[in-house]
Design a binder for these strands. Structure first.
Length: 432
RNA sequence: GCGACCAUCGUAUAAUGGUUAUUACGCUGCUCUGUGGAAGCGGAUAUACGGGUUCAAUUCCCGUUGGUCGCCCCA
């Protein structure tokens, strides 16, 4: 290594190092995700980080692929992209084995995803995302279940119904309103839907002005449907829309499941063009973090892009960064605890005895670390304290003679004398 | 890809175009050879990187890198 150019100690731009404390938070979030998904009977899958670039081109369009992904040509001349999202991958996997898979298919995954862009709040170059999807069910029953999983995750994080809100809309209803109600052509309808997607980021006057530019004299008709609070208010304006019918089923299903904190939001669009039915977003209601936490929707045409028969799908993706922000905002972050139960200190000449004790405890499932230094006992105990290890014992002449150890609880500062077997049973119970 | 702001010990900060760059917490050693948290006394550690202006730059200017926040985009 040359002396004039120091190797950087910083993590690559837009990525995070997970030191044990951050890894602890990450593990917690993953474990909640996994627990809830599995409780609904979803099976975990994964795939490679690498996909052929073509996979994303087919779905996302040239611009996103060339400007927002990590793409390269491999040694064999293939165009390769590091996955920026999981949905195309899972659609590909389903398409490939569609003949042998059993439907309804319930799958989840927690992949890390990459996008090449400017890092900012809640958006890094690498993040992890829970993907939950159900394939092979066309009816609203699958939509209801997916939203129940989303709701269940929030509850499992300890959130109350007041902490968040589920906003729901349906692309078919939106399209009906744009095309039938407003009578817009394809390009105006698209423009307006993109504008509606942004409406909450703009001032109301600005938004209406921009809408009026697209709509002309139809602006009034638009305002009639934009600010309704319920489907009933839409009433006769959307009688033939299958989207409206689907939403009614979903709302009834959620009510039946005891879920109350959802609303019909006619302005909800979501960015993806591939959604074909229901779209929803879990929204943080706290003024300190007032934004979408995650969302998803129905995509019945995605598997079909592989040239095979259609397989309907609905699902959502939830990011780890926004999940952590939510926990932080609402004081739901769990207290850090290292995955070590016991720190074993030793007096001069008793390291071997300390190691023997550790081995005995480990065989019974105790996670024990031995101080390998020749520091003074006070320093060894301090090391355990700094690492927030809950218990400590010191091995010396006395202990070796009697076979009794003083198990010290560092948080309470209390010591209890006991045998190795007793230590095992105490620490085992702590873990449960 | 575009724009704005920012960069001083591990963290949080102070100061200055000119001797040893401040303070707190943390870290470390000792007081204290079988037990962390208290106290006292010591100690180590910083002007992101590269260039320019200047007798002199941590300070002013430019660039790079990184961070933060918007825009674009949004799995």
């Amino acid at each position: 290594m040359s002396a004039n150019k120091k190797l950087s100690i910083e993590a690559y731009k837009g990525t995070r190092d997970f030191y044990p404390k951050e890894q602890f938070v990450q593990n917690y979030i993953f474990s909640v995700w996994r627990k809830v998904a599995q409780s609904f009977g979803y099976l975990e899958y994964n795939a490679s980080l690498l996909e052929e670039t073509e996979l994303y081109r087919a779905k996302s369009g040239e611009e996103i692929v060339s400007e927002q992904t990590y793409s390269f040509t491999d040694r064999g001349g293939r165009d390769v992209t590091i996955r920026p999202e999981m949905t195309p991958t899972v659609a590909r996997m389903v398409a490939q084995k569609r003949k042998e898979l059993t439907f309804p298919l319930r799958w989840f995954s927690i992949p890390n995803l990459f996008r090449y862009e400017r890092p900012q709040k809640g958006r890094l170059r690498e993040h992890w995302q829970l993907n939950v999807d159900i394939f092979g069910v066309e009816s609203a029953q699958a939509d209801i279940e997916i939203i129940k999983v989303a709701h269940g995750i929030m509850k499992a994080f300890g959130a109350s119904d007041e902490d968040f809100e589920i906003r729901i809309n349906d692309r078919r209803l939106l399209n009906f309103l744009l095309h039938e109600h407003l009578g817009l052509d394809e390009s105006r309808a698209y423009k307006l839907s993109k504008l509606v997607d942004k409406m909450h980021k703009m001032k109301a006057e600005e938004f209406l002005k921009a809408a009026a530019e697209i709509l002309g004299h139809k602006a009034k008709l638009f305002e009639e449907v934009l600010y309704v609070k319920s489907l009933d208010e839409l009433g006769e304006k959307a009688p033939k829309s299958t989207g409206a019918h689907g939403l009614q089923q979903i709302f009834a299903g959620l009510k039946a499941a005891g879920i109350k904190n959802f609303v019909y939001d006619p302005s909800l669009v979501r960015g993806f063009d591939y959604y074909t039915g229901v779209v929803f977003e879990v929204f943080d209601t706290s003024p300190a973090n007032n934004r979408s936490i995650f969302g998803g929707g129905r995509y019945d045409d995605l598997v079909g892009i592989f040239g095979v028969e259609k397989v309907p799908g609905v699902g959502f993706g939830a990011g780890d960064v926004t999940a952590a922000d939510f926990l932080q905002t609402h004081g739901l972050m769990p207290e850090y605890r290292p995955d070590i139960d016991l720190y074993i200190c030793h007096l001069d000449g008793y390291l071997d005895n300390a190691n023997n004790l550790a081995d005995k405890l480990r065989k019974q499932g105790v996670r024990a670390a031995v101080d390998l230094t020749d520091k003074k006992v006070s320093q060894q105990v301090k090391t355990a304290d700094r690492e927030q290890i809950p218990f400590v014992v010191v091995v010396g002449e006395e202990e070796v003679k009697t076979g009794k150890f003083k198990l010290k609880n560092l948080k309470e500062g209390k010591e209890v004398e006991m045998s190795a077997d007793q230590i095992i049973s105490v620490l085992r119970n702590i873990n449960k």
